[in-house]
Amino acid sequence: MNSLILVTATRILMPMLLLLSAFLLLRGHNEPGGGFIGGLVAASTFILHCFAHGPEETRKLLRIQPGYVVAIGLLLAMASGCLSLMSGMPFMTGLWGDLNLGGGQHLPVGTPVIFDIGVYLVVIGAMLEIVLTLAEEE
């Protein structure tokens, strides 16, 4: 698949799609979005790259094996649940803090956000693991 159009389009689309995925992930708590959707979008970005350049190039671009991404995601999700254990509350109780952004702006930050990032990473990793391996079959 050596399509000039695809390669060019990918170069422009990739950063935007990745930004979109991060955007979806972060806004998920208040607006439509979230780790699952964000992860799918990010995974499709890399799949697009895979179609344009081949799975080897995508693996080089990723630098890290998808399996590790899955593992890190799962660990993050687990760890976010364990934080509350340390303060004597049941597993996965949401803990919230307030981040002062200055100028009267406040951003609540909590363990569910870390959990969502974990979900995001697991989705990216698992999808890429499947798709890249399938692509290498050819």
């Binding site: 998920g28 979230g34 999700a77 949401g94 959990f115």
Partner: peptide, 24 residues
């Protein structure tokens, strides 16, 4: 109590977070 306006997502990551952990 969960600091989120998107109920679907709050259910996924907080109220029913345990289910999600199992799913991922």
């Amino acid at each position: 109590s969960a600091h989120g306006r998107n109920i679907v997502n709050v259910i996924i990551v907080d109220f029913r977070g345990m289910d999600t952990l199992g799913e991922i």
